[in-house]
Design a protein around this nucleic acid. Structure first.
Length: 645
DNA sequence: ACAGTTGGCGCG
DNA sequence: AAAGCGCGCCAACTGT
């Protein structure tokens, strides 16, 4: 493939652009950080969409495939059995670079809103949008060009269980900048469909050039470069996990449900175990058969009438009461949750053919964590994890980072004492909370844990508040870092993670609430509202630096695991249900903030475990080079996810 | 009839 | 013990 004049040693960007006539043009520019800093595009080549997989497969050297949105391109390539090694997701990179404090003052940050601002993520899975596979798509491309691409990006193949939850999450257009800052409001964005002009068109090459310029001009190009590479690698991993899916045994899931709830009921009916509990609840409350336990107002009224003395239905509050209704009600709530959130309907909708194909939204959380849409990929309850069973001849390597956030805090603050608490005298990594106890700072592991959580979340009450001063004395650097982040947030300032992802500014209504508190005639309630809002934002920024940096560690970890697993090569094994290009290779199947699950041929399990550990060390080095903080994992090789930990 | 909010709980 | 961070999802409820 002729990738143009920018080709040097190392990695080039190849920019994929959707052309109006359903062709794919590719353009090459020098990699980030070439001496002149400029982008020198090669001649664009136009080729039929159907040829792209071959193009990628036969790329002669290291290429960073650069595209507007990973999910518009990669699913089709995976379906064709082609894996991409490196990528640059312009949408994700744009969002980071626009907000980062490291690029403040660059032309990129100062530019007015454009078509790349607030793009709505494309859902995963092969769709008509990327490569124009479907005839209808091609026709539209010819008619309307890029505008049609965007519209088609919102279409998706039908699924079992139409009208599935979360459908409205994806859509045309862009997201607004968001106006966070009203009381209790989180800094997430609202969709503002329709505010893109019809003539707007994404120009990936121009955007890449602008992004490379912003990185080069930033306060720390190295960190941003790492962040963008990790974010994009995460997008590849997420698309691959959707492609392969998480092994899911419907028969085992059904057995779990039947055991807990009774046999699957006819549509619209309660399972028999739930029905029996409803009877017990009604009896205990002396309530009529019309009492609907799913209606909070109804139930609270009936409980008040029966003199139970509950003012809410929260589990922890019910547990404190002494009344015959408590036990059946708590059990009902728990089983009801299983039934509605992860019952037979969920199984049919999300894991119909031996795989749960989760939809991750990379960068979907302000802190940089992944979000998910539909299926609740990040909330898989422990009681159904037994259905996650490896294919015959395969096994799972499950790994999670031990005490990730406090260790990240130690690294961020370069707190040598806290880092040292995470290992024994001979340097072996150990339980960080036990290590904190060993320093004499606090008395019990539970105190160490609650204290650290309080420090990172902004806890102000209970044990957490009691222990904090002790921690501050023993680990002044770490505590100082989160306290400073909190104070910055209270002043309305932006804070940043290790690699340069920055928190959103508080927003206009925040300022107006603050302003009204300073009025001459400000009432006490206005002042207290402002104060409470200020503190809430401080807790947000306090947590942002830790949670966000932990997310960066996890991104680097996943990126490294992904690369290392591929390097392990193929095993001599029956593919099972896993599609190419992973049919005979170990591959990531699940990611949960600080935990991964790798589906691996049994013969490779030990090698996989080694690579996962090596990847954790690599992630630590990438973020905190030269600072001695460890990121130990607990690793288990198991047939069932339920058996991990 | 439909969209947005609320209370509650699942996960880290 | 039950609040301090970040989410998604459900059903019921509220607003239009």
């Amino acid at each position: 493939m002729s990738v143009g004049g920018g080709r040097q040693t190392g990695c080039v960007h190849v920019v994929l652009t959707q052309e109006p006539a359903a062709t794919v043009g590719s353009v090459a520019v020098p990699e980030i950080g070439v001496p002149d800093g400029g982008a020198r595009p090669g001649e664009p080549r136009h080729l039929p969409a159907a040829h792209l997989a071959d193009e990628v497969r036969s790329a002669p050297g290291p290429v960073r495939w650069t595209w507007d949105d990973t999910n518009k391109w990669y699913p089709e390539l995976l379906t064709a059995g082609v894996r991409v090694d490196r990528s640059h997701d312009l949408r994700l990179a744009h969002a980071i670079l626009r907000a980062s404090a490291l690029t403040a003052g660059t032309a990129f940050a100062a530019a007015p809103r454009g078509p790349w601002d607030g793009l709505v993520p494309t859902p995963p899975g092969p769709t008509s949008a990327g490569l124009g596979r479907e005839p209808a798509a091609e026709a539209l491309f010819e008619l309307e060009g890029a505008a049609a691409v965007r519209r088609l990006g919102t279409l998706r193949p039908g699924r079992p269980g139409e009208g599935r939850p979360g459908e409205g999450r994806y859509g045309e257009g862009r997201q607004g900048e968001g106006e966070p800052g009203t009381e209790g409001e989180r800094p997430t964005s609202d969709t503002r469909p329709g505010d893109r002009e019809p003539g707007d068109r994404l120009d990936p090459l121009a955007e890449l050039t602008a992004q490379l310029g912003a990185v080069a001009a930033s306060a720390d190009p190295g960190r941003l470069r790492l962040l963008l590479a990790a974010e994009s690698a995460g997008a590849l991993a997420a698309a691959e996990m959707h492609h392969t899916g998480l092994p899911w045994r419907a028969d085992v899931h059904d057995a779990i449900l039947t055991e807990a709830l009774g046999p699957r009921p006819r549509l619209g009916a309660r399972p028999e175990r739930l029905e029996a509990l409803v009877q017990r609840i009604r009896d205990a409350l002396d309530a009529p058969p019309t009492l609907n336990p799913d209606s909070h107002p109804d139930l609270l009224k009936a409980m008040e009438y029966a003199g139970v003395g509950a003012r809410s239905l929260r589990k922890w509050e019910l547990e404190r009461l002494d009344h015959p209704v408590v036990e059946p009600l708590l059990e009902y709530k728990s089983l009801y949750r299983l039934w509605t959130a992860n019952g037979w309907t969920w199984l049919d909708t999300w894991a119909p053919h031996g795989r749960f194909r989760m939809e991750y939204i990379v960068g979907g959380v302000v802190t940089g964590r992944w979000a998910s849409s539909g299926g609740g990929a990040l909330q898989l309850p422990k009681n159904v994890r037994g259905a996650v069973l490896a294919d015959p001849g395969w096994t799972f390597v499950v790994a999670d980072a031990a005490q990730l956030e406090p260790r990240v805090l130690a690294g961020l603050a370069r707190d040598e004492r806290m880092a040292a608490a995470g290992r024994t005298h001979d340097g072996t990594p150990t339980d960080l909370y036990a290590g904190i106890v060993a320093t004499g700072a606090v008395e019990t592991r539970e105190h160490a844990k609650v204290g650290m959580l309080g420090a990172m979340y902004g806890g102000t009450t209970g044990v957490s508040a009691q222990v904090m001063p002790k921690l501050a004395k023993a680990f002044p650097d770490a505590i100082e870092l989160v306290e400073r982040a909190a104070r910055a947030g209270e002043r309305g300032e932006v804070v940043s993670t290790r690699l340069g992802r920055s928190s959103p500014p508080p927003g206009e209504s925040w300022a107006s609430v603050q302003g009204s508190a300073f009025d001459e005639d400000a009432g006490a309630d206005a002042q207290s509202r402002a104060r409470s809002q200020t503190r809430a934002w401080g807790r947000f920024t306090r947590n942002f630096v830790v949670q966000g940096t932990a997310a960066e560690w996890a991104l680097c970890w996943v990126a490294s695991i992904r690369r290392r697993l591929w390097a392990l090569g193929e095993a001599d094994i029956e593919p099972g249900l896993t599609p190419e290009p992973f049919a005979r290779r170990p591959h990531l199947v699940y990611f949960l903030h600080d935990e991964v699950v790798v589906h691996a041929p049994v013969a490779l399990a030990d090698a996989v475990a080694d690579e996962v550990r090596a990847a954790a060390e690599e992630a630590g080095r990438l973020l905190f080079a030269g600072f001695p903080v460890d990121f130990p994992l607990s690793v288990a090789v198991v047939e069932s996810y339920a058996d991990a930990k």
